[in-house]
Design a protein around this nucleic acid. Structure first.
Lengths: 162, 162
DNA sequence: CCGCTTGCGTTAGTCGCACTAACGATGTAC
DNA sequence: GTACATCGTTAGTGCGACTAACGCAAGCGG
């Protein structure tokens, strides 16, 4: 049998239930699972969407630039681009102007896929936010955005890597 | 050098920035890091706190019951209890009434430690929620709680394990 | 009394993800 | 032209969620 999952948080102490950092973790765990499984059903992963969306909004870019814009590590981006180009959603070509770089370009198929992923992610977000009405969703988004801007502005959290 | 972290999300596309599920992930990543590092500085981990708090609020319990209440897997709980008992914060004793079970009891030192962790977690939460005022924090907590209750009620997400 | 099923604690191991380190090749600055 | 930074890539670490299976004890039906 699975373990604590069957009846999770049946009687979680009040202190745990009201800890905001824990709430964040728990809610995100559910949310991530829903999104990851939903995307997996469409043969995609979170980063696929991030890369495709970035490419559409900001145009072709090198992998390093995509890394900066999406937050995906340069090293992990390699396989993401591999997967995307294997599916014909992006094209990877050497940059004639700077031979260190690859230029990643969104293809027509990539644009189509992006449309579908947009719709899919929309419905997945609906599933996650089901109990909230539109105003509350906006509230939540606004609050999270402020938290992210506050922390996200200045580096990932370890300017001194060690 | 670290990678995309140095200047993260410098110009993340609007679509990504407004995706609630992504916001949750990103914010939680920062929050978790702050909490984990903060607790590590006090020779503790998230689960330590969860277990100690549960023990104080609900009294001595078997490991399986702690697992249900905290959401920590039975298997992972073993090492948590090991660590806590090695530090003298809990006691693990066989249950005379049911020899399959161990009874986990909070010690005086455990209670003390719990006090300090309460304070520490409070200040870490402050750090995470820094940009929000009290009303907004309550709002956020309320919204997250509703999301958690909605999804958390019915199992972890896989009632059919296989 | 015996077999079956269920719950318990424990061990070991998988999988995915954030993250680091290093390398070869290329571009840039002094 | 030598020193340094940047890019793509490979390999690997560490951790947290999760699964599988074990040996043991308890409860229940016959």
């Amino acid at each position: 049998m699975t373990d604590p999952a069957e009846e999770r948080n049946t009687a979680a102490p009040a202190r745990l239930r009201s800890l905001p950092t824990r709430l964040l973790s728990l809610v995100t765990m559910h949310s991530d699972r829903i999104v990851t499984e939903g995307l997996a059903g469409a043969d995609a992963r979170k980063w696929h969407y991030a890369v495709l969306a970035t490419l559409e909004e900001a145009g072709p870019a090198s992998q390093a630039e995509l890394s900066r814009r999406t937050g995906v590590y340069r090293s992990d981006l390699v396989s993401v681009i591999n997967e995307l180009s294997a599916r014909g959603l992006v094209e990877r070509a050497p940059d004639p102007g700077d031979r260190r770089r690859n230029v990643i370009t969104l293809t027509g198929a990539g644009r189509d896929r992006l449309r579908r992923l947009d719709a899919l992610l929309g419905s997945l977000a609906d599933e996650v936010l089901a109990p909230l009405d539109a105003a509350e969703r906006d509230q939540l988004t606004a609050l999270l955005t402020r938290l992210l801007d506050h922390h996200g502005g200045h580096a990932g959290g370890h300017s001194a890597p060690g």
